[in-house]
Every structure is written in structure tokens, then in C-alpha cells.
């Protein structure tokens, strides 16, 4: 039991001292996750909005596929991206395997369906309210899409947050394509897994504390923003 408290005390010590190794891992984690979520939003928001707004052949199928892909097993994604980026794979010449870029790609593949499927639901709800007014005004397809995304911005922040939560907690896919190489591709989750197996609980717990704190702060910020928006009738 005392080893638990020792580890906890030591982990706080690392966080308070801003341990350089710890900071490097946190920095890389944030860079990889935020880039992956940004790219996933860049693809998922318009894709989901289009699926929630327009009627086209295969729309229902697209919705079913997006919903199904929300539950993609990360290790399968990791394997798929590994095969794509490996020396014999179609993207092998780019030499991206075991780089942060490979981890960004893997996380993006996992998060994009989540963003797209949740966006489709949000936008569909907004569209059912606005559709007749937009049709009456003669709003064009692009304006309609952009307006729905803009008016749903606070709900879509929650969608992005869901994507962030999934990406920042990801282990399986990033360890396969990143390799958990020290000072190169070592992120918080993979370090926690490695250090725990090595018995270095101080660093593992320190990273766990940081991970929880980040999740808490981001959630609190988004919820606060959304509550303000609801009070102002913007959400």
C-alpha cells in the first residue's frame, strides 16, 4: 500500500517539477492528438453535415456505415495503417511508419467516423427545423451547409470533444504505427503502458494525473461554453 502512496507522491513531484521527459511526452501527445482531431473535424464535419442535410442515393447507407465505424477497433485501424505505411505497402515510399505522422493518421482514421456520425445527427436535427425557411429563402446548398454548421457550432464543439477524448486515450493503434520510440513517438498512453510494465509507477501515475486533468479541463471548458451559449439562446 505504501508503494502506491510513494508512487503518487513521486508522480506529483514530477508534475510540479515540470520534469523535461514528462513535458516532452505531454507535448508530443497534445501535438499528435490535436492535429488528428483537427484533421478529423476537417473531414468529418462537412461529411456529416452533408449526410444530415442533403438527400442523395446511398445516404442511408452512408449513415449506417458512419455509425458502424464509430466502433472501429483501434488495433485493427493500427494494423490497417501499418500495412499501408510499411515498406511493402502502397504508402511505404513516404517512410512514415514509426513517426508522429503515422500516429496522427491512425488517430484521424479512428476519430473521423465519430465526428462525422455525431455531426450528421446534430445537423439533421437543425436541418429539420430550418429546412422550410431555407427553401423559402432560396438558400443554396453551400450556404445551407455552412449555416447549419455555424448555428450548430456549440453542439459540434461537444462532438469535437468526443473525438478528442477518443484520440487522447488511444493506445493500440498508436503503439502499432508509432512503435513507442523514446523521444520520437512516445506519447502519454503508450508511456503509461510501458512504464507500468517496467514497474516505474511514478512516471506512469504522473502521466495518468496529467491525462485526467487535461480531460477534465477540456470538458469543463466546453461545458461552460455550451452552458453560456444555451443561456444566450445561441445553442
Amino acid at each position: 500500500m505504501s508503494s502506491f502512496w510513494d508512487a503518487l507522491a513521486g508522480s506529483f513531484g514530477l508534475v510540479i517539477a515540470l520534469d523535461p521527459d514528462l513535458m516532452e511526452i505531454i507535448g508530443l501527445s497534445m501535438r499528435v492528438t490535436l492535429t488528428a482531431v483537427f484533421l478529423a473535424c476537417l473531414i468529418g464535419l462537412p461529411l456529416g453535415a452533408a449526410a444530415g442535410t442533403f438527400r442523395f442515393p446511398g445516404r442511408t447507407l452512408l449513415s449506417v456505415v458512419l455509425n458502424a465505424l464509430m466502433g472501429l477497433p483501434p488495433v485493427v485501424v493500427g494494423l490497417f495503417v501499418y500495412l499501408l505505411l510499411s515498406a511493402s505497402g502502397p504508402l511505404g515510399p513516404l517512410r512514415l511508419l514509426y513517426t508522429p505522422t503515422a500516429m496522427i493518421i491512425a488517430q484521424m482514421v479512428i476519430v473521423t467516423p465519430i465526428v462525422a456520425a455525431l455531426t450528421r445527427q446534430v445537423v439533421e436535427d437543425f436541418n429539420s427545423e430550418y429546412a422550410e425557411q431555407f427553401a423559402s429563402m432560396g438558400v443554396g446548398p453551400l450556404d445551407r451547409l455552412m449555416s447549419l454548421l455555424w448555428d450548430g457550432r456549440y453542439s459540434l464543439l461537444t462532438v469535437a470533444l468526443a473525438g478528442f477524448g477518443r484520440a487522447v486515450a488511444e493506445v493500440g493503434a498508436v503503439i502499432i504505427v508509432g512503435g513507442n520510440i523514446n523521444h520520437v513517438t512516445r506519447v502519454m498512453t503508450t508511456t503509461i503502458a510501458l512504464e507500468t510494465s517496467k514497474g516505474n509507477l511514478q512516471l506512469a501515475m504522473a502521466l495518468g494525473i496529467v491525462l485526467l486533468t487535461i480531460a477534465f479541463v477540456v470538458n469543463a471548458c466546453v461545458m461552460g461554453l455550451r452552458a453560456t451559449a444555451v443561456r444566450s439562446a445561441y445553442a
Binding site: 430550418y130 422550410e132 425557411q133 423559402s136 449555416s147 439562446a233 445561441y234
Partner: peptide, 19 residues
């Protein structure tokens, strides 16, 4: 569509954007 743009409609429950 051109004729429709020469018309406007107000609904029973006003549809206002969240702006």
C-alpha cells in the same frame, strides 16, 4: 426557383437562426 425568390414566407412559429 426564380419565381420563388420573388416570394417570401413567414411561418406560424418563426424560424430564427441562432444568431
Amino acid at each position: 426557383a426564380k419565381a420563388q425568390r420573388a416570394q417570401a414566407m413567414v411561418f406560424q412559429r418563426p424560424v430564427l437562426l441562432r444568431r
